[in-house]
Design a protein around this nucleic acid. Structure first.
Lengths: 177, 177, 177, 177
DNA sequence: TATGAATGAGGCTTCATTCAT
DNA sequence: AATGAATGAAGCCTCATTCAT
């Protein structure tokens, strides 16, 4: 069934580019017209490939979060010890901090728009995916995971205040336990 | 003389009740009509007391954040030592976690709507107010502040996962330095 | 009845200053709040002295047009001949062109707002007052009156295009007949 | 392919019918809802074809003024002499006096609403278009153009007072120079 | 498969007017 | 005599979605 393959390929391409558009202005403020224009298709086409705005967003989140996890763990040598893994993961987070912050804001924006269980589940799944990836590298994270999230959030609230070195040291302290 | 209404008192009352309405649905989704109905006044009256939706929100944030800081520090004995202070502050945060999470979401929602410098400054001021209050109790916070924020955020992403005891222990570890 | 006298005096003062406020933004765009603030009173006070916005405007037009006619004819010597009278009146019109244009725009704005007979009559009365004043000085005006009006209007449509000298010559030609 | 509708053709049809609606009540008093209802479309459709209320008005003025100039000059034989041209143009003006008066009021109403340079330029362009058309027929107009404008304005201020014959004679006198 | 014209409810805001004080 | 708080309809505009082509 080649048509279905094309369908999937086309959907995947649209989703990849959809993140930037959503992230620029948030879920609510990104209209279907804006989305269609930015993707170079018509609104009708979007409704042909997807069930609607929410559907696009949900599929996009799943796709993007999976891609992120792969990217973050790709550069870690299989034989690295726990300390090194932490350093590499932390470095990846810092390098992609802006991106991750946008993702976080985007998810909160979506949560606002749709507060059913379905949306909650989507967000939980995405969050768990990221968290599990971290725990696969450094073991049970607990407060360490909160520290990572908090560092990103503080960057949103008071940009430029957070001290990266201190946060790495904090992470190491939390995980030494 | 007009109907006897103290302008400032009336504004304060409206602002206090406005928080709940905003927090229920977020900044964007809370319409002026909803707000007016929820406050028991007409939209025109809101425009009599405030400059508009943004004005209401901004004044509300300032008022509420100041009130929070007072409440959080009120129960701390002046002669408490640093460890006790941390415990009391942390207890207050946990007791008001849901409220603080709503505040956080609300601020992010507003930031989406308005990304001017003015909005950024408002958010920074509010964030700094909370952070300074914490630092007054436990000294320079650094990653500890991020841990607090992160705990709240994790509660939004994956409700019920975070372990309060572990987080308190983490905080103590971070601040022992 | 001293109270009534005060009433009239107060009304007259308000009307005199109301013209500028109306003329600045037009009839529609001048709100009662703006008017009240500009006059240094409350909206309630305006409703105490006048029947409403339309009433203020109508009384203002009558007052101002009478004042204008007096001003325009005041400087004309009783023994001036027809040619001199024309020159003096024309000079007054040119000197007050901007003001007269504002008046014209204001009247059209009001006519738009209220197209009943009452408004039409008010405008006719004012127009007749100005036209009669001109005819008292230079005799039956006919097209000469149109030329004056047209000069003002052209100044509104294409500012700076009209040649004053040519218009005076045109007026003289029209009135020589 | 979408529903087959030529964007430009549809816009042109809407604009043609929009003039009547605007002229009936003026720019300000003609709401988008009124406009949409009068044109038999939804407000959303109007925003699909145009940028907004001002955009509709501006495009309408340009279209209508060009159409007028064509109509006014269409009936003039190429070999007519200057006197005949004046008579024919004047006849056209008188025949369309009511229409031209509505146009004039409409433009003034719009000028009130929007006093930017852009609006001023639009009005100047339209005025110049009409004036140039007159001057192409009868040569440099100067005060003659003002007389035409003034005749129209007087008809607005004091309907039925102006004497058409006298005005034609006046025009001839002014242009004989 | 793909288009984009069309909808109409709902967004924020303004305003003349009333009336208790 | 004077105030200004309160009203609520109506202003312009945006948007996700549908459907004829």
């Amino acid at each position: 069934m080649p048509k279905i393959v094309d369908h999937e390929v086309q959907r995947a391409e649209l989703l990849d580019r959809a993140f930037e558009l959503f992230a620029d202005n948030g879920y609510r403020a990104t209209s279907m017209r804006t989305l269609a224009a930015g993707l170079g298709v018509s609104t009708g086409t979007l409704y042909h490939y997807f069930g609607g705005k929410e559907d696009i967003f949900e599929k996009m989140v799943i796709r993007v979060s999976q891609r992120d996890v792969s990217a973050a763990t790709a550069a870690i040598p299989p034989d690295a010890d726990r300390a090194l893994r932490l350093q590499l993961v932390f470095a990846w987070i810092c390098a992609n901090a802006t991106y991750l912050q946008r993702m976080l804001l985007l998810i909160f924006d979506f949560q606002r728009h749709r507060s059913d269980d379905e949306a909650t589940v989507l967000i939980q799944q995405a969050a768990q995916l990221y968290r599990s990836a971290l725990e696969q590298q450094v073991g049970e994270a607990g407060p360490a995971w909160s520290l990572v999230l908090g560092m990103l959030v503080q960057g949103l609230l008071e940009p430029g205040i957070a001290d990266t070195e201190q946060h790495l040291a904090g992470l190491q302290a939390l995980l030494r336990t």
